[in-house]
């Protein structure tokens, strides 16, 4: 990086943060937590809708379908995590990894389907409120995806 120009910009943010009349970080965090909770219901409805959109996109042959699945699962990963839905967020992350690492024309549709099933199950009231069931759903998903990614035995010679 030799030959670069170094300089010190003076962004206004620094001066504004230090102005009198501010608030304590602990108060700000309490207010932010409350503000985020206000939109929890709306966001969770949005997640349910995105799960169904992933399923629909995964059945499409459109070139952009897998990118759409990736984007939607990425949104679920981020938004579920904000509300502490760890398992839901984790399953969405697993789907992101699957979609990001596979070549576009080799993404196993059945693997997407089992992820969607897991996401739906985790959003059902009976599972969502029971930690043991949530853990069982994630364990089942892991077992299924491991089985799918294992090399299939060829015919005996």
């Amino acid at each position: 990086m030799s030959g670069g120009r170094f300089f010190q910009p003076a962004p206004r943010l620094k001066a504004l943060l230090a102005e009198p009349g501010g608030m304590r970080a602990s108060d700000a965090l309490r207010r932010a937590d409350r503000a985020v909770l206000e939109i929890r219901g709306r966001c969770l409805s949005g997640i349910d809708q995105k799960v169904e959109e992933i399923l629909a996109a995964s059945k499409s042959d459109a070139p952009s379908a897998m990118d759409r699945c990736y984007r939607l699962s990425n949104e679920i990963y981020a938004e579920a995590g904000v509300f502490g839905l760890v398992e839901l967020s984790g399953v969405a992350h697993s789907l992101c990894t699957l979609l990001a690492e596979s070549e576009l024309d080799r993404i196993p549709r059945e693997a997407i389907a089992v992820h969607v099933d897991a996401l739906r199950a985790l959003r059902s009231p009976a599972v969502a409120e029971n930690r043991q069931l949530r853990t069982a759903v994630v364990a089942e998903l892991r077992a299924l995806t491991a089985r799918m990614s294992a090399p299939r035995a060829g015919p005996a010679r």
């Binding site: 206004r12 943010l13 504004l16 943060l17 230090a18 102005e19 009198p20 009349g21 501010g22 608030m23 304590r24 970080a25 602990s26 700000a28 965090l29 985020v36 939109i39 709306r42 966001c43 949005g46 997640i47 984007r71 949104e75 981020a78 938004e79 904000v82």
Partner: peptide, 24 residues
């Protein structure tokens, strides 16, 4: 927790594709 800051005069631009992430 005791750090004091002031954002009341700050304009913040938030850019997200997802409406819900934007809300959050």
């Amino acid at each position: 927790p005791n750090a004091v800051f002031n954002l009341t005069k700050a304009s913040v631009l938030v850019v997200e594709q997802s409406q819900h992430s934007l809300d959050v």
